[in-house]
Nucleic acid binder design. Structure first.
Length: 558
RNA sequence: GCGCCUGUAGCUCAGUAGGAUAGAGCAACGGCCUUCUAAGCCGUGUGCCCGGGGUUCGAAUCCCUGCAGGCGCGCCA
């Protein structure tokens, strides 16, 4: 594809560098090497299209004043080699570049030619990225935190894929370990109670209604024959039954949320294949473990962690940590991912350093793993914070949420804020204001354009599109914002924050609505009409591409 | 006690690889529908950027320190 904006910027940067070299040759000042030159977009339009602060970076190295350096750069800058119309020096030494009027029209050609691919780049050069997100415990339904993690994780995966990475979306199923143990005890207690055996429900068991429903259905299907079974065997049967139901439900709920995974990875497989014990063995061989109190410990402190961690408990059962190491080794070593991104709740942040340490200890690069720590969602209802717990069974589930506010609004809402922002989800407000949700603002822009395009009956096919007719302020600003799309995607990758796209979507919609109120697409001047039809078509393409990334609908009508 | 995250307009938040006059949405107020969807547009104003020091030509942004809130510090996951 043709990166208009990128080309324009690169040209200018190259020419600044050339100008610096010339200045050095003319001995206007001395400089050993040309530093990195950054072009930024000034906030104020009066400062031109791009500016650089390079002249203010150099006084220390050259012993000359910023303005002196700026003047030298401007003097030796060859405008004919770039799209620059005008260069000014302003303030303490900023160099501001104003582009020739016509450069922006190339953007429209670009969008028109690339269509549903507009925004895609080769930035990632095909590197393999694994994005693991949600990975909710399969002991019950998903909650609001999972909903946020889903929106962030899926958005991240999309953005990576658009930026030219090869992406695998993955759900890690914790179908082993202590939680499953408790899950089994809870199921068993309910089963026995339902079948007339008076047993106490475990204190820290799962008290949710879903457990009871599972066991009622199970009893209907299989009767009470497991009452007389050995407890261990009985639990196995009940767990297997309820777990599959839960996983199935999770998969279905996520589908309804617009998320489909490439890989569902089961923790239990790592135990079955002996991968967990093998990895502990390898750590032992590499000398990164020791025995204490009958347990096997990983020397995490050797890698800068605050404390060591247990790999194998004194009852010979490996910890979740050991399994997680094996899991990540599987990602990087077995499956060869270049990069791993995990979306975790902030309550897991203590786990980040030690998993990276373990990877380092195994000769892999812990730095190849990035964890997006999202702050937890606090549910506010009737002005009060609602405490939620899967075990207490008092949570608002993902499917409740979708029922109440809709998939699009939920996806959009959870990607409106950066992952690290603490997030109060006011349920009353979300329901009440669902019609004023910003998602409609974006979708409305798309529907409006669709409507216009439906109404264009004139035969414009023979008219050549002359974009230079688009001279209004609103038209030019609208075009400029379209140019930012590929860069916004790349920045989202760099900052690991897909919520940038949501905010960009609002920007595009806002610029479109302003244009809409200032300029008529359908008008008597057919040539102008043709140009505007092409313009709004380009906006429609970008909006559509954005909604693909965000996992929401782009309605033709509203 | 120690570690991580957060603290910006009345509210929810952008801006934090140092840059020019700190922004947006919501809320409030006033305008705009005989013309392509008013779920829209235009206008009006608000800030001890949590406090205090420091680094710098320049700090919301970096460093130190204090305060407030969230989370973590298990042979739970």
């Amino acid at each position: 594809m043709n990166y208009t904006l990128s080309q324009v910027k690169t040209e200018i940067i190259d020419e600044i560098a050339a100008s610096l070299k010339k200045s050095i040759e003319k001995e206007l000042f001395q400089l050993d090497e040309i530093p990195e030159i950054l072009l930024e977009t000034p906030r104020e339009k009066q400062f031109g299209d791009f500016s650089t602060n390079i002249a203010m970076q150099l006084p220390k190295l050259t012993k000359k004043s910023p303005r002196y350096i700026a003047e030298a750069i401007v003097e030796n800058y060859d405008k004919s080699k770039t799209h620059v119309e005008k260069i000014d020096i302003a303030g303490p030494g900023f160099i501001n570049f104003t582009l020739k009027e016509d450069w922006i029209y190339g953007i429209l050609e670009d969008v028109k030619n690339t269509g549903s691919d507009y925004g895609k780049t080769e930035y990632g050069r095909g590197r393999k990225v694994n994005v693991e997100f949600i990975s909710a415990n399969p002991t019950g339904p998903m909650h609001m935190g999972n909903a946020r993690g889903g929106a962030i994780g899926d958005g991240m995966a999309q953005v990576l894929s658009w930026a030219g990475f090869e992406v695998v979306k993955e759900f890690y199923i914790n179908d082993a370990g202590n939680q499953i143990e408790k899950f089994g005890q809870s199921l068993e207690a309910r089963y026995l109670q339902i079948n007339g055996v008076a047993v106490e429900f475990p204190e820290d068991g799962y008290k949710g209604e879903d457990i009871t429903i599972h066991m009622n259905e199970f009893t209907e299907a299989h009767g009470n024959k497991y009452v007389n079974f050995d407890s261990r065997e009985r639990r196995e049967v009940l767990i297997a039954y309820a777990l599959e139901k839960n996983i199935k439900k999770i998969e279905e709920d996520l589908k309804g949320y617009g998320i489909e995974y490439d890989v569902w990875f089961r923790e239990s497989e790592l135990h079955k294949s002996n991968a967990v014990l093998e990895i502990v063995e390898e750590l032992k061989e590499r000398g990164h473990t020791y025995e204490k109190d009958g347990a096997t410990w990983f020397k995490a402190t050797e890698f800068g962690c605050e404390k060591d961690d247990v790999l194998i408990r004194n009852n010979d059962i490996p910890t979740y940590f050991a399994a997680d190491i094996a899991y990540h080794v599987n990602k990087f070593r077995t499956r060869g991912f270049d990069w791993g991104i995990n979306v975790w709740g902030a309550d897991h942040h203590g786990h980040v350093a030690r998993i990276k340490a373990a990877l380092d200890a195994l000769g892999l690069k812990g730095d190849n793993l990035d964890v997006i720590l999202m702050q937890l969602v606090r549910l506010v209802r009737k002005g009060e914070t609602a405490r939620m717990s899967k075990r207490q069974g008092n949570m608002v589930t993902l499917s409740d949420l979708i029922d109440e506010v809709g998939k699009d609004a939920a996806r959009f809402f959870f990607n409106l804020r950066s992952p690290e922002s603490h997030f109060d989800f006011d349920l009353d407000l979300a329901v009440e204001e669902s019609n004023e949700n910003p998602v409609f603002y974006v979708q409305y822009a798309h529907a409006r354009i669709s409507s216009i395009l439906r109404q264009v009956e004139e035969d414009l096919g023979k008219i050549d599109a002359d974009f230079t007719l688009l001279k209004e302020k609103e038209e030019k600003e609208l075009i400029r914002i379209l140019a930012e799309f590929p860069f916004e995607i790349i920045t989202s990758v760099e900052k690991m924050d897909p919520s940038r796209i949501t905010r960009y979507a609002m920007d595009v919609a806002s610029n479109f609505h302003s244009f809409y109120n200032a300029c008529r697409v359908r008008n008597d001047d057919l040539k102008l009409m043709k140009a505007r039809v092409e313009l709004v078509s380009a906006v429609k393409v970008v909006l559509k591409n954005i909604t693909e990334i965000l996992g929401i609908k782009a309605p033709e009508r509203m």
